[in-house]
Amino acid sequence: MRTFFLTLMFLLILPSSHASTLAEYTFDEPGKAEDFRTVTEEMRCLVCQNESLAGSNAELAVDLRNEIYDMMKAGRNKDEVIDFMVSRYGDFVLYRPPLKPSTYPIWFGPLIVFLIGGVVLFRILKRKSLTRETKLSTDEQHRLDDLLEQSTDPRDNNQ
């Protein structure tokens, strides 16, 4: 399940921000370069306005990129790098909020919103199928007729 979601996210990652490039960061191990890209793209450059570490040219971003590169080069994996960065800069650095009690509203809130939507839909439909056809008042009907008189749209005539 976890890999399923990870692949899902990898596939949708939008490459981010201004044109700094990752050309200088090469790895011998297969897959490591991809991991490096993912990690830096999903982290915020802390001193920029909404740019990722991968994309930013700010000094701090370059330093952090180098640091992450050194760590990964030294054999640490993706999760270890993320843990390290979070312990140093907090969750703010992650574009994907981590799953923990304080972020439950962010991750499970949407389900509640969906649930509310579903309940509203259900209630309206139930009420609607029970109510009887309401009639317009004569006054309203006159005004409506007046407005509709010149229309030839077939859908106006009750499709």
């Binding site: 996210m9 949708l12 990652i13 939008l14 981010s16 999903e42 915020r44 907090g90 969750d91 703010f92 650095v93 992650l94 574009y95 994907r96 909020p97 304080s102 972020t103 509203p105 962010i106 809130g109 949407p110 919103v113």
Partner: peptide
């Protein structure tokens, strides 16, 4: 929710967080 969450967390002192493209996607 995703746009305002970082603001709300900051205001309620629940810690600074970011909600970015992985969540929105």
């Amino acid at each position: 929710l995703g746009t305002l969450a970082p603001l709300i967390y900051d205001a309620l002192e629940l810690g600074k967080i970011s909600v970015g493209f992985p969540w929105f996607n």
